[in-house]
């Protein structure tokens, strides 16, 4: 019963959080600059947490995440602008299309480990970008104009659903199978874990949410171009996950929020931003490889604090 009450309280808090922001938005208390910032944070959280499932939980070093983002962005944009479909089915289609790509990448790259997998996923991301560049239907290098359809409600629901799905998946027998693969693939297989199935599952679910993030992204920033989905985008997402702490979901959320804010203030200085990013990455790896949170969660820390007080 404790669990049900906890879930109820959490649900209530989430609803209040949503309502407060929505109210402020409709009353015009949040100006467009901050609204944009909010959307940015939400999209980055989606990208980071979906990559967290692949890298942090399953231990598959994928650095082509922008490829999934691109698939989602383009599929949804084509559906809404070219085929005049409503936004909701376009969002779902973006997720499904990206998930299919996730399976497509997952299956051939399963046998690869560590750095080989990294290069192959990077290659996948580049192939997606180059392909989009060459398709005139979606505007080639110039990209596509997209209507502004993303709003707080869609994004909020998407983020919350994603966090619940990934958290629930992680805290279950299936999530433990993913963790086992991260820890030791040979041993996991020896314990009866079908590593092929689980790796594809991780890629599919991760890509699904990256695709949804793509739909949100496309319909937030008016225009999408292949150049926005290159290696640098994948790298940005990777930095968030590494900074948050590989294996920590709340770390990914925290780092996504933090870096989105930093980003906005550094937007005017793109070079400085990248130098800073790379320095942060190197320094974190050298001096705090576990990132902000290690593989712990915020809830673990709260529990410990409460335990001490009691």
């Amino acid at each position: 019963m404790v669990n049900r009450r906890k879930a109820l309280i959490t649900g209530l808090l989430l609803l209040i959080g949503y309502a407060v922001v929505q109210l402020m938005l409709s009353m015009g208390l949040i100006d467009p600059f901050y609204e944009n910032m909010l959307m940015n944070i939400g999209i980055n959280i989606m990208l980071a947490v979906s990559l967290h499932l692949i890298i942090g939980v399953t231990g598959q070093f994928s650095i082509g995440h922008a490829g999934f983002l691109a698939v989602g962005a383009y599929v949804s944009a084509v559906l809404t602008t070219k085929l005049d479909q409503p936004f909701l089915p376009a969002i779902l289609a973006a997720g499904v299309a990206a998930a299919l790509f996730g399976i497509l990448v997952g299956v051939p790259t399963l046998r690869l480990r560590g750095d080989y997998l990294a290069i192959a996923t990077l290659g996948f991301g580049e192939i997606v970008r180059i392909t989009l560049y060459n398709i005139d239907y979606v505007g080639g290098a110039a990209g596509m104009q997209v209507r502004h359809l993303t709003n707080w409600t869609y994004l909020y629901i998407a983020v919350i659903v994603m966090i619940i799905v990934i958290a629930n998946l992680t805290n279950s027998a299936h999530g433990r199978a993913l963790l086992a693969i991260r820890e030791d693939e040979v041993a996991a297989e020896a314990m009866g874990v079908n590593t092929t199935y689980y790796k594809v599952l991780a890629f599919a679910v991760g890509a699904f949410f990256a695709g949804i993030a793509g739909a949100m992204y496309a319909h937030q920033f008016y225009v999408i171009q292949p150049v926005a989905f290159g290696f640098l985008k994948s790298f940005e997402i990777l930095v968030i996950v590494v900074l948050g702490g590989i294996g920590s979901l709340s770390g990914a959320i925290l780092a996504a929020t933090l870096l989105s804010l930093v980003n906005i203030y550094l937007q005017a200085f793109p070079e400085t931003r990248m130098i800073l990013y790379s320095l942060v990455l190197i320094l974190v790896m050298l001096y705090r490889p576990q990132g902000l949170m290690g593989n712990r969660e915020i809830t673990d820390l709260l529990k410990r604090r409460l335990g001490k007080e009691a």
């Binding site: 027998a173 299936h174 433990r176 199978a177 963790l179 086992a180 820890e183 030791d184 040979v186 041993a187 996991a188 020896a190 314990m191 009866g192 874990v193 294996g247 593989n295």
Partner: peptide
Amino acid sequence: TFQNIRLFQQLSVLDNVRIAHQV
């Protein structure tokens, strides 16, 4: 079992066993 111990090092003892249970 493995000659060179191959536990899931970062996971708890309980989780190590639970992973095997999920068969």
